[in-house]
Amino acid sequence: MRAVTQAQYGGTDQLSLSEIAAPTPGPRDVLVRVRAAGVDRGTWHLMTGLPYAVRMMFGLRRPKSPVPGRDLAGVVEAVGSEVTTVAVGDEVVGTADGSFAELALVPEKRVGPKPTDLSFEEAAVLPVSGLTALQLVRDAARVRSGDRVLVIGASGGVGSYAVQLAAAAGADVTGVASGAKADLVRSLGAGRVIDYTREEIGADGTRYDVIIDLAGLRPLRELRRSLASRGTLVIAGGEGGDRWVGGIHRQLAALALSPFTRQRLTSHLSKESGADLAELARLVDAGEVRPLLERTFTLDEAALAIDHVADGHARGKVALVV
């Protein structure tokens, strides 16, 4: 089968399109004929092995999986002997350890139904970012109707879902993005957009019940000034920082400080869950959430797709058509 491969950590120059053997499903695995694969910022981190902390889970000296990519949408080609929730021919979404390929293995617990109203390309950008946003809004931030919610990084992959999910929960949402993306963020359900190139967060004195920080490296003290006295701050992103832990130091600082303040300061690490993928499909089919797919690339353009996302040019999500 055709697949994008990499032998070592590095930039997109390490990627090549190769012919490799098709994977064989184990007892609890689902073999998916990939129709489209999502590309997000996490793809870049796993490709480069930066910050170095990611190598603790994904390979110290080289990537454990020679095929990059996590998100996928496709059709079930075969199932393991113990799989009971899907069958051959089902249209599914899921997270694989290597989705930039014609065939990919997905553990049964990480596969869910493809939303009926989406194309394969749209569905392929739902799993990782959609799961992260759903669990952020529902579980970590505990957003309720009437809450004043600030989403920093509102035009990105996770942010575009977080704005929609918070608005669907009945929150009054403010998004932080560049002025060029303000109309896009409003179309997702934000009542107001702060252009970070021209306005500082908190300049108008607004204090938010919930702040979801998905971008940048703003200091905790700055974020807390805009948080209600008993509000919740969730830090789940932050590019930059050093090569060892990146922006993770802010999450650690928030968790350490939280017991000593009335504000709730926390972080979030998403779980890849088939049940939550099914919930996302329900929300999409109900018209409450929709993937923001900016553009697609072909499989042999994987390097271009990753560079496009890493450079910050994407308005929402990007997919590879396999």
Results as ranks from 00 to 15, higher is better:
residue 2 R to L: 15
residue 3 A to M: 10
residue 8 Q to D: 15
residue 10 G to D: 14
residue 11 G to P: 03
residue 13 D to A: 15
residue 14 Q to D: 07
residue 14 Q to W: 04
residue 15 L to E: 04
residue 21 A to F: 10
residue 30 V to G: 00
residue 30 V to P: 00
residue 34 V to C: 11
residue 35 R to Y: 11
residue 36 A to F: 09
residue 37 A to N: 02
residue 39 V to Y: 09
residue 41 R to T: 03
residue 43 T to S: 14
residue 44 W to H: 08
residue 49 G to A: 06
residue 50 L to C: 08
residue 51 P to W: 02
residue 62 R to H: 12
residue 65 S to D: 14
residue 66 P to G: 07
residue 67 V to Y: 07
residue 69 G to Q: 10
residue 71 D to T: 10
residue 73 A to Q: 01
residue 73 A to L: 05
residue 73 A to G: 09
residue 76 V to N: 01
residue 79 V to Y: 01
residue 79 V to W: 00
residue 83 V to P: 00
residue 88 V to E: 15
residue 93 V to W: 00
residue 99 S to M: 02
residue 99 S to T: 03
residue 100 F to N: 07
residue 100 F to M: 13
residue 103 L to N: 01
residue 108 E to K: 06
residue 111 V to Q: 01
residue 112 G to Q: 06
residue 113 P to N: 01
residue 113 P to L: 04
residue 114 K to F: 05
residue 116 T to F: 12
residue 119 S to R: 06
residue 119 S to I: 11
residue 120 F to Q: 00
residue 120 F to W: 00
residue 122 E to I: 01
residue 123 A to F: 07
residue 125 V to L: 08
residue 130 G to A: 12
residue 135 Q to I: 05
residue 136 L to N: 09
residue 138 R to M: 08
residue 139 D to F: 12
residue 140 A to E: 05
residue 142 R to L: 09
residue 144 R to M: 06
residue 148 R to T: 10
residue 149 V to A: 10
residue 161 Y to M: 08
residue 165 L to K: 04
residue 167 A to T: 04
residue 170 G to C: 01
residue 170 G to T: 00
residue 173 V to H: 01
residue 174 T to V: 14
residue 174 T to F: 08
residue 174 T to M: 09
residue 176 V to L: 13
residue 176 V to Y: 04
residue 176 V to A: 11
residue 178 S to Y: 10
residue 180 A to T: 13
residue 184 L to G: 04
residue 185 V to F: 02
residue 189 G to Q: 01
residue 191 G to W: 06
residue 192 R to S: 14
residue 197 T to N: 15
residue 199 E to G: 10
residue 207 R to V: 13
residue 207 R to P: 03
residue 207 R to H: 06
residue 208 Y to I: 06
residue 210 V to P: 00
residue 211 I to Q: 06
residue 214 L to D: 03
residue 214 L to M: 11
residue 215 A to C: 10
residue 215 A to F: 01
residue 216 G to I: 02
residue 225 R to D: 06
residue 226 S to D: 12
residue 229 S to C: 08
residue 231 G to A: 03
residue 232 T to A: 09
residue 232 T to V: 12
residue 232 T to Q: 03
residue 234 V to K: 06
residue 234 V to N: 03
residue 239 E to V: 08
residue 239 E to L: 13
residue 240 G to V: 11
residue 241 G to K: 08
residue 243 R to K: 11
residue 244 W to G: 09
residue 246 G to H: 05
residue 251 Q to I: 13
residue 256 A to R: 13
residue 257 L to R: 07
residue 260 F to Q: 13
residue 264 R to F: 07
residue 264 R to L: 02
residue 265 L to Q: 01
residue 268 H to R: 05
residue 270 S to V: 15
residue 273 S to Q: 10
residue 276 D to R: 09
residue 283 L to K: 00
residue 290 R to V: 05
residue 293 L to Q: 02
residue 294 E to S: 02
residue 294 E to H: 14
residue 296 T to M: 14
residue 296 T to R: 12
residue 296 T to N: 12
residue 298 T to E: 15
residue 299 L to T: 06
residue 300 D to F: 10
residue 302 A to G: 06
residue 302 A to D: 01
residue 308 H to Y: 15
residue 312 G to W: 03
residue 317 K to V: 07
residue 318 V to R: 00
residue 319 A to L: 15
residue 320 L to R: 03
residue 321 V to S: 15
